[in-house]
Design a protein around this nucleic acid. Structure first.
Lengths: 343, 343
DNA sequence: ATTAGCACTCAATACAGTAGAGTGCTAACA
DNA sequence: TGTTAGCACTCTACTGTATTGAGTGCTAAT
């Protein structure tokens, strides 16, 4: 059976109507609203074919049709037209970001809020990732007699820090020496290297400072790993309760539960390799998202992928709009991050 | 009309039954389950009195009674017995915390998770607050030619920092001079003082460094304020969907919306002055929480109140358990924070 | 003061009937 | 041969009605 252009129009009509209404779409509706020249009976025949081909399905005999995951996939890949967000919205993203210049952290949270507001779905974002960069330098700063602040600068300019509390007092000159030692050994390493870092070797060449190094270095390493998995934010979770598919309280609860598992969200975002990735329904690996679609995209610093953002909605998603918003968002993020860090 | 001891027992029975069942409690139930020696008719008379006194109310004529806010208040203040959490749970809190030693941030998030898990309500916590302490010292650390890390240490030992990107390069010796200047002017100030800080005066005495100071100091001040209002976490939001009072999707959505407004949650937590504060239903100032109860408590460093945590649940809350858990939590937080910061 | 008995109220449930949307099939038509 | 009108059929959603049962308030007896 081949996919004539009328079938394609009908599929498009079904999908776009269903996206708006969340109700099964019948042949009469299509005949009246989308293909005025064609009678319901003809459309019924075509719909029957489309069902056989697996693009649409029927919840029960006397209902209209709804798109299947396969149908959405075809729609996204071949049918829908791209770039439906207008210049005003594009401007909005740009403008909003200029205001939140400053702390990277703030920028990221702002991106999340903006994504969920503009799409009316739930957004998830991850802060720029260490794991994908390497250490440029480490600075140790004496705060108090036995308190040291460790600052880690990476090649993408991301700065992380942690407070170290030592068992004994430390003199400034010794701290300088230790700082140099650490930089000798650790500068240039990325997180994968750090996993295999040979602490013992360093202690053997510690010139009598092994006791302090033993306290400092593991703490430093831990900081790297911790910040790697924890900085995931989300926003607009309440939006999903506006959708009829979540009027079932059990589904809503499951969704909320999932959104509170930061580790999980991190994994989802971390898996993104493409510029923009679209996962529809059962295409998602996660059981929890089998009835959702995810639009995820990566952002970069100096063309180096450094993190990703995404939105989660029902499979009946406004793909075209959602995709362009997410895309526009990552483009702006990339640009601004690159600018503020290389300024 | 006076409050005989039988009325008190009946009120207690109504409240405790309603806490468990979320269903209006009838006279027969009380007679069978709580006051076996007394007939339903007698209890009905007493209940009628209790209703006149405003402690209970009737959703509709042929239903049982449910407690009013006033009823809960009396229960909390005079009737319920304290401290129902057992030694095992107390131990659990202690043990859990010992593991998450290290980053204060992690400790705080952990506290939130623990609170919601143990109570099965929604928890909110705020990170230790600057506003309640004063600046001990400011350190500026040169990261790159035009990039400076500012570290602020407070008298309670809380350390905050932010990355400053300058318009021009800066020499290390000049940075030291500026650091000294800033410390001269700002050490000892608290956030309230900072609000009235006279930047112009400082610029007049800047010995030729006014251009850099003009970039650094406002940024520094902003960091103080930003971190003051943003670090609010919550956990267990999904728990509320298990409660029958939120099976109405509209209510659930409103609740979720509220929980996503960090500013609002911050204000709620920031208002807490007492060791433990219990706000029942309409006692809450916020419209959004008129059907909820909040148990909030402060935690301290060196006996100086530095932040607070709380749980939000339905007015039909397991007050006794919730209060002891929140109390136990803040005690542990206070102890651990004091220890790790003064170590 | 307490209790048994009774009439009354009201929400919740179950049930039957109806309306309406939609399909599939067949036969007629261009 | 593709398209369409017509019709019987299916199934959900809604509506109205009757029933049930939990609970109350009142009255009279203990």
């Amino acid at each position: 059976m081949d996919m004539g252009s009328r079938k394609r129009l009908i599929l498009q009509a079904i999908i776009e109507d269903y996206i708006n209404s969340a109700e099964p779409v019948g042949s009469r509706t299509i005949s009246k609203k989308y293909l005025t020249g064609t009678s319901p009976a003809t459309i019924r025949n075509e719909m029957s074919d489309l069902e056989d081909m697996g693009y649409i399905e029927q919840p029960h005999t006397s209902a209209g049709r709804i798109p299947s995951d396969k149908g959405y996939r075809l729609y996204v890949d071949k049918i829908m037209k791209q770039n439906t967000i207008n210049e005003a919205q594009r401007e909005m993203i740009k403008r909003e970001f200029i205001e939140s210049l400053g702390e990277i952290d703030r920028l990221i949270k702002h991106a999340s809020k903006l994504l969920s507001q503009m799409t009316q779905y739930t957004s998830i974002v991850m802060a720029p990732q260490f794991r994908r960069t390497s250490i440029k330098q480490v600075q140790l700063l004496r705060i108090d007699r036995a308190v040291v602040l460790a600052v880690i600068v990476t090649d993408a300019g991301i700065i992380k820090n942690s407070v170290l509390r030592l068992k004994q007092d430390i003199q400034p000159d010794i701290l300088v020496r230790i700082t140099n030692m650490i930089n000798d050994k650790m500068a240039g390493l990325n997180v994968e290297d750090i996993e295999r870092f040979d602490l013992q070797d360093m202690l053997n060449n510690s010139l009598g400072h092994s006791e302090i190094i033993e306290q400092v270095v593991p703490e430093l390493i831990q900081t790297l790993f911790y910040s790697d998995t924890s900085e995931v934010y989300h926003d607009g979770v309440s939006n999903i309760l506006n959708l009829p598919e979540y009027s079932d309280i059990k589904k809503a609860r499951d969704f909320l539960n999932t959104m509170e598992e930061r580790e999980l969200l991190f994994r989802v975002l971390n898996d993104v390799r493409e510029d923009v990735k679209i996962s529809i329904g059962k295409e998602n690996n996660l059981e929890q998202f089998k009835e959702c679609s995810l639009i995820t995209a990566t952002y970069k610093i100096d063309n180096k992928v450094i993190g990703s953002v995404g939105i989660i909605g029902p499979t009946r998603m406004e793909y075209s709009k959602a995709i362009s918003i997410v895309e526009c968002m990552t483009n702006n993020l990339s640009e601004i991050l690159t600018n503020i860090l290389k300024r």
